[in-house]
């Protein structure tokens, strides 16, 4: 009679297969990113397609960013006021709001919204192009699909998302002003100046860099998931879904890292 044995080797095999898959996934993603940088600076440049994509991104996300930005401005101001009142420090309100919205909320909220709307859109679009052989069709007519589809989209997200972030900041401050003006009579200009009084160039610069990094992340993750979508309609849905999850996850990690780096820079 054969004894049941714990098959350690088998177990190890499963583990190593999982690791294999993980690392080959990482190296595939790494090569995908590398290919972007290799091809982005080589002609031909599809400028008009980049512009098209910028408009597409704006169109997809503008309503949601306006709404969210405005509401966050109102709510954040409303919630912060009592806390400051306890210390008799309501005069600090505009600069508190400025710091919160310019440095953190504006870029982050914009990036998260765009990860949801734009990232999933790119994932689904490229995914369906992949499974219906449209990407192959480009390749066999001697058109470089990576350049035409991926480079243009990633470049567009890197341009459009910083712009949208500033738009979100502006709308957020307007929302905040709406709340402020129910309590005090300041002009928007004064409020705006006050809220920017403690914002330094480095803060603005960091926000721009952050937004560019988020834009790159959203574009490249969406493209990657779409470009390697497996066949079938389920593959397309999966690509769109994974694009959002992955992009959001990376955005949070990047947020932490960039804040840390900008603090070090400030320290020196």
């Amino acid at each position: 009679m054969q004894e049941p044995v714990f098959n350690a080797r088998n177990n190890k095999y499963v583990l190593s297969e999982g690791l294999d898959e993980f690392f080959s996934g990482v190296s595939k993603a790494y090569r995908f990113v590398g290919q972007y940088f290799r091809q982005a600076f080589k002609p031909p440049f599809h400028f008009s397609e980049v512009v098209n994509q910028c408009f597409e991104i704006g169109l997809r996300s503008l309503t949601l960013i306006t709404l969210t930005g405005f509401i966050i401005g109102i709510v954040f101001t409303k919630q912060s006021r009592p806390a400051l009142e306890d210390f008799g420090a309501t005069s600090w309100l505009p600069s508190l709001i400025g710091i919160a919205i310019v440095k953190a909320l504006g870029p982050l909220v914009t990036a998260l919204i765009c990860a949801g709307k734009v990232g999933s859109g790119i994932g689904a679009e490229l995914g369906s192009m992949k499974v219906t052989e449209q990407i192959d069709a480009m390749e066999v007519s001697a058109i470089n699909p990576f350049k035409y589809l991926v480079v243009t989209r990633v470049t567009a997200t890197m341009i459009a998302i910083p712009i949208l972030s500033f738009y979100c900041i502006l709308v957020g401050l307007m929302g905040s002003f709406v709340n402020v003006s129910t309590q005090e009579s300041t002009s928007f200009l004064t409020f705006f100046q006050n809220s920017f009084s403690t914002i330094h160039f480095l803060d603005l610069f960091t926000s721009v860099v952050k937004s560019i990094v988020y834009g790159f992340t959203i574009g490249i993750v969406g493209s990657y998931k779409g470009y390697y979508a497996t066949s079938g309609t389920r593959g397309v849905g999966k690509a769109a879904n994974q694009a959002v999850v992955m992009a959001m996850f990376l955005i949070f990690i990047e947020e932490v890292i960039i804040v840390q780096i900008s603090n070090w820079i400030r320290f020196f």
Partner: peptide, 27 residues
Amino acid sequence: VGFSFQSSALYDSMSIRQNLEFPLKMN
């Protein structure tokens, strides 16, 4: 070499005219 795909592989974000013009303009 012309390749006619099983799924036709028309670019579905483009009109028929744009589909036909695309390989010419790009090449």
